[in-house]
Design a protein around this nucleic acid. Structure first.
Lengths: 339, 339
DNA sequence: CGCAGCCATGCAAGCGCTTACATTCACCAC
DNA sequence: GTGGTGAATGTAAGCGCTTGCATGGCTGCG
């Protein structure tokens, strides 16, 4: 397929040194004399040489690649963090390989295997809940990994994220403070998704503390898609009495809820309040703006990159990093309507 | 970094055959006797063997990888097509490597080089406008590539997409038919972006045909972001007389325009109509729903995958594929307000 | 029964690169 | 002057896999 490319040896011949020296010139420039380096650099440029990836991987047993498996690219939730991750990594000459699991644990495991097969030097995974086999596999191969989008005090693996439960609790608290009592929630599918589950727990916690509860019919689990969110909201809106607020497990669900509410001829927040989670761009495009939990996407990505690179360098298992979230108040949350 | 993994040789030893046979068992199962195959398969399973990627790449000079460089992952524009591309490819055992250029031609060239350095067997690029050097490079390396999101009758490279100009023309025509005459446009940055430019051309074409024109102050170029779109819209709204419709170069810009219009205390479509382009999910979450050009994202991705695989197999340069677009009418487009 | 032809398999030569070790040389301290 | 030191470079052995060619056994046909 690919045509014959110049090799290290071609460069070596052209610059009158051995391949070893060329290799060193490329990987550790200070270990060759400046003049030699210059000659080699010239030759490289003239030949348009690029190191052969496979050869390098084979000889050095490193690929300068890290993999990330995210649930989906269909919405922008992971985009910003990934972008930051990629920027940090490529500043160190490391390439990021992204694949998606579609929120399916088995699919995720398959993708992890695929990435390991490609010899990634490290891996970023979303959340903590997954088959123990995956962790075993990762550890057996000695591939460093970090979990993002989640954090809890005693997580056994290196993770950088935030406390989903606590953030959800805070949001629910705010809703309670405004006087809401008929509170409903559209959560993500909690099976195999610790973030989604933690967010439900957080809301539950806040309600409990007020002597309230989240009955089964006020909690709908839904795929993280606009359509599914709308459908879930429709179910909630059909109840009598209607909830006065819908807490959504993420902003995409909230956007779906907006659509359903609008279709039902109701308005946000006059008839019903809505809150989201994640604070993606969508949140302030919606009308009214969505009150949501702000997540430090970029910082999470950056921290993950740093941690991974450090683990690769010294093999140490670093401490987790807990980032702060905050609530962004926008127009979608108001006091409940009278009555 | 990675621990010692079982190698082909381990498998060979365990199943009492040569490495050559194991290799064949893995790559061309029908070329080994069924019983031998069975023994090898067992050994593979028992050892948890996975082929070493670098070794394979080195020996076979193929990586079973194709690369795609897209402008951004920050919005969902390319997500669906990419998803389809990936699905098709991985059904053939090919991995997709995605990287982003942030709409910067130089950055794109750099990413192309990086992917070539990794020895991709093929490449998917967005649009046609880019430095000739990039094409030269690609051709010199003999790496098959296909251009997506664009199509025109005499494009010299294999492309699968649609006629951006024609689609934009149709949209403008529709707007004209409704009686709009003060027509403004928020386009993407046209430099280095043939799709953005073609969309402007299309609109121009429709206006010309009606003896109208798109004066400089009615055309704003903007980054493809919500914020930038809003800012561009603000500029247009400040004009007197105000345009009665804003044609946007994509849905994200339109969403930004919505925000600006709302902030100005105006309403869509009563005071001003808005149209988009791409038909991403966002388009029907917006309120009112966004009238936009529907693009066959998935089919584009699938066709690109097929084409690339075919090119890899027989080396032939296939014909381009032209897909149809269509206009999706939603609430954002109405007749201009009286006066 | 012998030989052409085929199938299943083994042998061994790399693919392009890194790196431990060896070599060379200049320089310095004594 | 001599031995020690360290910097710059070369030598060559692989890394794990694929694949052209060689081998040997078997089938089938004349």
């Amino acid at each position: 397929m690919a045509k014959d490319l110049p090799t290290l040896e071609d460069v070596a011949r052209m610059s009158g040194v051995s391949t070893a020296t060329v290799s060193r010139a490329l990987n550790a420039p200070k270990r060759v004399r400046p003049e030699t380096l210059a000659r080699i650099t010239d030759a490289v440029a003239q030949l348009g040489y690029t190191p052969h990836f496979g050869g390098r991987a084979l000889a050095s047993n490193r690929t300068f690649t890290v993999g990330a498996v995210i649930p989906t690219m269909e919405n922008a939730i992971f985009a910003r963090g990934l972008q930051a991750l990629q920027e940090q990594l490529s500043a160190q000459g490391v390439t990021l390989l992204v694949s998606t699991s579609n929120y399916d644990p088995d699919e995720e495991a398959a993708q992890v295997r695929a990435l390991l097969g490609r010899g990634v030097d490290g891996m970023v995974l979303i959340g903590e809940a997954r088959d123990a086999q995956v962790y075993t596999l990762l550890e057996r191969r000695g591939v460093p990994f970090v979990l993002v989008w989640t954090w809890r005090p005693d997580c056994p693996w290196p993770c950088v994220g935030f406390d989903n439960a606590e953030a959800a609790r805070a949001m629910a608290q705010q809703v309670l403070d405004l006087g809401h009592r008929r509170i409903a929630m559209i959560a993500g599918i909690t099976r195999g998704n610790d973030r989604a589950a933690a967010r439900v727990d957080g809301v539950r916690g806040a309600l409990d503390a007020h002597g309230l509860s989240l009955p089964a019919d006020r909690l709908v689990e839904s795929d993280y898609s606009l359509e599914a969110g709308a459908e879930a909201a429709r179910r909630l809106l059909a109840q009598t009495p209607r909830p006065t607020v819908i807490l959504c497990g993420n902003d995409v669900l909230a956007a779906g809820a907006y659509a359903a509410i609008r279709d039902a001829g109701l308005s946000v927040p006059a008839d019903i309040s809505v809150t989201g989670f994640d604070d993606i761009d969508l949140a302030h495009v919606l009308s009214p703006g969505l009150t949501t939990v702000h997540v430090p996407h970029r910082r999470m990505g950056e921290a993950a990159a740093r941690m991974l690179l450090a683990m690769g360098a010294d093999g140490a298992a670093p401490d987790g990093v807990a980032l702060q979230t905050g609530i962004v108040r926008r127009g979608s949350l108001a006091a409940p309507p009278p009555g």
